[in-house]
């Protein structure tokens, strides 16, 4: 019958018009179509149902059924491995590593299963960078004294520090004002989309340091998942695969579109030379990787070391 299941789908980031917002809408619509309206998915956009930590708690407890979400470390510190700097180098490497049978997916899926979450697959965003106002840096030395906002999730601030910047913890809602008034010089570790859309009129430069590859994951609470019969589970999985496949083709183009938009709006887009990037990679891997190993364990870090590629 129509409306047999009502499922709640949300994300901590992205309004209706953002790539994640659109992906949620598409996923929900496809599920509705494939089930002839038997399964209704209610989508809630960024902030509507609360902040990141609350949403993830509600998700793990089963009060939110589905999410497209960034990795969170609150239930399992091993999740920090997803923020390992210079884990993948370049788009081709990233696409291959994060694909369904890629090595990154094989690392992350069991961790999510242990949390009680059903894993559909990744929703890649692109490579993060350092967006700043007034001046920019492409080396450890130039970065001295520059303050950039960083999420407090380990090891993101450690990474940005190792690159020579000062990482400042500021809540997302206060970043705009903080850049405007000069509390910080910019933002770090986000793909260019967020910096252009949210702080575009404040920022002058985006340095494509690519120290992190940012990706969301399509997930479902295990309890909500097992409430569905096999046919319905198939419908959700199929719809998810379609969303994921589309994004794997679209992510790079989407990122390039935002680079262009940034340039049109007067932001300078800077790609460090191979030499500059190599120096950062060396520093960051030497300084931060051992710290990550302490948190996630040698077994996972061995996989990382075996698979991570060397800079081109």
């Amino acid at each position: 019958a129509a409306g047999e299941h009502r499922l709640v789908l949300t994300s901590e980031a992205g309004d209706r018009e953002s790539p994640v917002g659109k992906a949620m809408t598409t996923w929900a619509e496809k599920i509705g179509e494939k089930s002839d309206g038997r399964i209704r998915v209610d989508v809630f956009f960024q902030g509507e149902l609360g902040g990141q930590q609350e949403l993830f708690d509600q998700f793990v407890r089963g009060n939110v059924d589905m999410m497209i979400t960034w990795p969170q470390t609150s239930y399992d510190q091993r999740m920090s491995v997803m923020f390992t700097p210079y884990l993948v180098m370049g788009w081709d490497d990233a696409i291959e590593s994060y694909a369904e049978d890629g090595w990154v997916s094989e690392v992350v899926q069991p961790i999510y299963n242990d949390m009680g979450l059903h894993y559909f697959g990744p929703f890649p965003e692109g490579f993060g960078g350092i967006a700043t106002k007034g001046a920019y840096a492409t080396s450890f030395e130039d970065a001295q004294g520059m303050k950039v906002r960083s999420q407090p999730i380990f090891p993101l601030p450690q990474t940005v520090q190792a690159m020579g910047f000062q990482a400042v913890p500021i809540d997302w809602s206060e970043v705009y004002t903080s850049i405007q008034t000069g509390v910080v010089d910019g933002d770090s570790s986000n793909v260019i989309y967020w910096d252009v859309e949210y702080f575009g009129d404040q920022l002058d430069y985006f340095v494509q340091s690519s120290h992190n590859f940012s990706t969301f994951y399509l997930l479902m609470n295990e309890g909500s998942w097992s409430n569905l019969d096999e046919e319905d589970q198939g419908i959700l999985s199929d719809a998810a695969s379609e969303v994921i496949t589309t994004q794997f083709q679209a992510a790079r183009a989407e990122d390039e579109k935002w680079i262009k938009t940034a340039q049109e709006r007067g932001m300078e887009y800077i790609v460090p030379t191979a030499e500059q990037k190599g120096a950062w990679v060396e520093r960051v891997r030497a300084e931060v990787w051992p710290q990550i190993e302490e948190v996630v364990g040698t077994e996972i870090m061995d996989k990382v070391r075996a698979n991570a590629s060397t800079p081109e």
């Binding site: 609350e54 708690d57 509600q58 407890r61 009060n63 809540d171």
Partner: peptide
């Protein structure tokens, strides 16, 4: 028909705010 586990999860995180 809201699950009781949902209530204080929201209550706690809402006031647990630096602002």
């Amino acid at each position: 028909d809201v699950d009781i586990s949902s209530l204080m999860t929201t209550g706690f995180w809402s006031v647990n705010s630096i602002i």
